[in-house]
Amino acid sequence: MPQDGDSGGDIFGPIKRKLIETKQKWARDGRLLTGETASPAKRKLPPGQREVKNWPVLDLGSHPVVTQKEWKLSVTGLVENPVSWDWATLMAQPVFEDTSDMHCVTAWSRFDNRWEGVSARHLLSVVKPKPEAKFVILKCYDGYATNIPLSAFDDADVLLATKWEGKAITREHGGPVRLILPKLYLWKSAKWLRDIRFVDRDAPGFWEVRGYHNNGDPWKEERYG
Rank of each mutant, 00 (worst) to 15 (best):
P56N: 01
P56V: 00
L58K: 09
L58V: 11
D59K: 07
D59I: 05
G61C: 15
H63Q: 13
P64Q: 03
V66R: 01
T67D: 14
T67I: 11
K69G: 11
E70I: 11
E70H: 13
K72N: 14
S74Q: 14
V75A: 01
T76I: 15
V79G: 02
E80W: 00
N81C: 00
P82F: 06
W85F: 10
D86F: 04
D86L: 06
D86N: 14
A88H: 12
A92L: 08
E97T: 14
D98W: 12
T99R: 15
S100E: 08
S100I: 01
S100C: 09
D101V: 01
M102P: 02
H103F: 02
H103P: 01
H103G: 01
H103N: 01
C104D: 13
C104W: 06
V105P: 01
T106N: 14
T106M: 13
T106K: 14
T106Q: 14
F111T: 00
D112P: 03
N113K: 03
R114M: 04
W115A: 11
G117Q: 11
G117E: 07
V118Q: 06
V118D: 05
S119V: 08
S119K: 06
S119Y: 12
A120T: 13
A120S: 11
R121Y: 00
H122D: 05
L124G: 00
S125H: 02
V127P: 02
V127C: 10
K128N: 00
P129N: 14
K130H: 01
E132A: 11
E132H: 02
A133I: 01
A133N: 06
F135D: 05
I137G: 13
I137A: 13
K139R: 15
D142G: 07
Y144R: 09
N147C: 14
L150N: 10
L150Q: 08
S151T: 15
S151R: 09
S151I: 12
A152Q: 09
F153K: 01
F153W: 07
D154A: 06
D155S: 12
V158C: 05
V158A: 07
V158K: 03
V158I: 10
L160M: 11
A161I: 01
A161K: 03
A161M: 04
T162R: 10
T162Y: 03
K167R: 11
A168G: 11
A168I: 05
A168F: 14
I169T: 03
T170M: 08
E172D: 12
H173E: 07
H173Y: 09
G174R: 05
G174S: 06
P176V: 13
V177N: 04
V177T: 05
R178C: 08
R178L: 10
R178M: 04
R178N: 03
R178E: 08
R178F: 10
L179K: 03
L179Q: 03
L181Q: 10
L181I: 13
P182F: 05
P182C: 13
K183Y: 05
L184V: 04
L184Y: 12
L186N: 10
W187D: 08
K188H: 12
S189M: 03
S189A: 07
S189D: 04
A190G: 08
A190W: 06
K191C: 08
K191H: 09
